[in-house]
């Protein structure tokens, strides 16, 4: 464990974005409006209701120790996952769409491996967007937003019968008592030490093409996923600006 390249990019982007300590988001989109991935389904008499599959949130909550290490906490993570799923179900930004919850594939499902890999791929692509669009923008990505999870999402399209997939990734840390003590001690000496922080992103993927149609990066020094109201705020922030 420890902080790998991805974690560093996330922290760097966080440092660039966080000003004044409250929630801050940056979003990018490649479409203005969401359309059905399978237009054949829509007729003028019966307009197609957009179907959106909500992927299991990729979340990890941890304790920030006095020395600045993050130590994953299983109990908090478990709570945060179920709170996030609950809050996503009633989110304002998702109103008017038919939400499908992603159920893990059966062990014998021949597409099980691909469905799993798509979720890991989202983690990699999302972190690449943070790195190359936000933290250290690549010249070739400056004026365009053209990331994709690739054609293989067709498997997810067929599995969940959805037009779009919503992915959530959050890494959230909370200062331990020791960290708070060192922060205060450092502040007395005029040195600013970072405390716990919430950083994450929401990604909307067109299951017809695999393209990332919308991406929202969130960093929040006060976000808290350990209770329902904190989770509601986090979901609101994560879905802020999502195209309809």
């Amino acid at each position: 464990m420890g902080i790998g390249g991805i974690g560093r990019a996330l922290m760097l982007a966080g440092v660039l974005l966080v000003l004044g300590g409250c929630a801050s988001t940056r979003d990018f989109s490649s479409v203005k409006k969401l359309d059905a991935a399978t237009p054949a389904a829509a007729t003028p008499a019966e307009p197609h209701v957009l179907q959106l599959v909500v992927m299991p949130p990729d979340v990890e909550l941890s304790v920030l120790t006095a020395g600045g290490m993050t130590e994953p906490n299983a109990a908090w993570t478990q709570t945060a996952k179920s709170l996030l799923v609950d809050q996503l179900g009633g989110a304002e930004a998702l109103r008017g769409k038919k939400l499908v919850r992603f159920e893990p594939p059966a062990a014998a499902d021949p597409n099980g491996a691909v469905l799993n890999e798509i979720q890991h791929l989202h983690r990699a692509v999302g972190n690449a967007i943070v790195m190359h669009k936000l933290a250290v923008p690549l010249p070739t990505k400056k004026d365009r937003f053209d990331w994709s999870l690739g054609q293989e999402v067709a498997v997810l399209h067929d599995y969940a019968h959805a037009d779009y997939a919503l992915f959530i990734y959050v890494r959230d840390s909370y200062s331990s008592a020791g960290r708070i003590f060192t922060q205060i001690a450092a502040a007395a000496l005029g040195v600013g030490l970072a405390g716990g922080q919430q950083a994450g992103f929401a990604t909307l993927v067109d299951l017809g093409t695999g393209n990332v149609v919308w991406f929202n990066f969130l960093v929040d020094a006060t976000g808290d996923l350990r209770d329902a109201s904190g989770a509601a705020d986090t979901v609101k922030n994560l879905l802020h600006g999502m195209p309809q």
Binding site: V63, P72, E117
Partner: peptide, 25 residues
């Protein structure tokens, strides 16, 4: 281990890594 402590966190991270290996090509 209990979910709330250091070891619980380590096991959680291990479970995730194990999941990835189990489904790895």
């Amino acid at each position: 281990p209990p979910d709330g402590d250091t070891e619980g966190g380590l096991w959680m991270a291990s479970r995730q890594a194990e999941e990835e290996i189990a489904h790895s090509p």
